[in-house]
């Protein structure tokens, strides 16, 4: 265990319409055993003591599963470690004297609410558009009635592991949400339960994504590299396939 000192340049913005700016803070001594969010906690405790407003940032589980946390650290959504959410990132990955620029996820579809907190309700809206199986409670057949090849179940799980953090959007040069949408469309199209609605789902979710003002996918692969859950762009290819099949061949519009 040892302490490091960092220079923090943190995006401060009072509200959605207020102008924002990078503000510089000295971190004070930071234990390398701390998580990134604990480092922000320490800063916030100090700011509070000094009567200043602490930095607002979203977080909840601090275990890398709820998808609530996230900020861009030196240009990297969730920081520089691969497959690691911001809450799971530990300070031992930084060196004494480092400067960290901490910014919110940026996209037209992600309004900044305050400091590092952004509005990601667009992700919910895309699920609302079609990211479900239309089955009411009750009346489901026995769970083992339809066997599902292990490989399909595993692949569906790979896609379903998405935590809805929005880092893919933040990392994409075009602020596209394709990886997120692709993860859901793939998850459900790989399982027989999702089949009846697969055409509708692909069309509706893509339409919603476009209407929300996310960008287009240029296959830059930045999302995959930034995704804390390692969601593969294979899912994007699958989404493209599902969408094109639906748009060209199905009766749905």
């Amino acid at each position: 265990m040892s302490d490091i000192h960092l220079t923090l340049k943190i995006w401060r913005q009072e509200g959605p319409d207020a102008p924002g700016r990078l503000q510089t803070y000295a971190s004070g001594p930071i234990s390398t055993d701390m998580s990134f969010l604990e480092m922000l906690d320490v800063l916030n405790e100090r700011l509070t003591g000094e009567g200043e407003e602490p930095v607002a940032f979203d977080h909840d589980c601090r275990e890398g599963i709820c998808g609530m946390c996230g900020a861009v650290v030196n240009g990297h959504p969730h920081g520089p470690e691969k497959e690691t959410t911001l809450c799971q990132l530990h300070m031992r990955h930084f060196k004494d004297g480092d400067t960290l620029v901490i910014e919110p996820f940026r996209a037209r579809a992600f309004r900044i609410e305050k400091d590092l907190v952004v509005d990601r309700s667009g992700l919910d809206k895309m699920i609302t558009a079609g990211g479900f199986v239309s089955v009411n409670t009750g009346g489901a057949p026995d769970a083992n009635a339809i066997p599902i090849p292990q490989k399909n179940a595993e692949e569906a799980m790979d896609a379903a592991a998405c935590i809805g953090c929005g880092a893919c959007v933040a990392a994409c040069p075009n602020a596209s949400a394709m990886l997120f949408v692709a993860a859901k469309v793939s998850h459900l199209s790989l399982l027989p339960q999702g089949h009846p609605e697969r055409a509708r789902r692909a069309l509706d979710m893509v339409r919603e994504m476009d209407e929300l003002g996310f960008g287009n996918c240029s296959n830059e692969r930045e999302c995959e590299a930034a995704c804390p859950k390692g969601i593969s762009i294979r899912n994007i290819a699958r989404l493209n396939r599902e969408f094109l099949k639906a748009a060209i061949l199905s009766d749905e519009d």
Partner: peptide
């Protein structure tokens, strides 16, 4: 049963 019908990818 309900969860499987919703598409929950339980281990198989």
């Amino acid at each position: 049963d309900q969860c499987v019908a919703q598409g929950v990818p339980f281990a198989r």
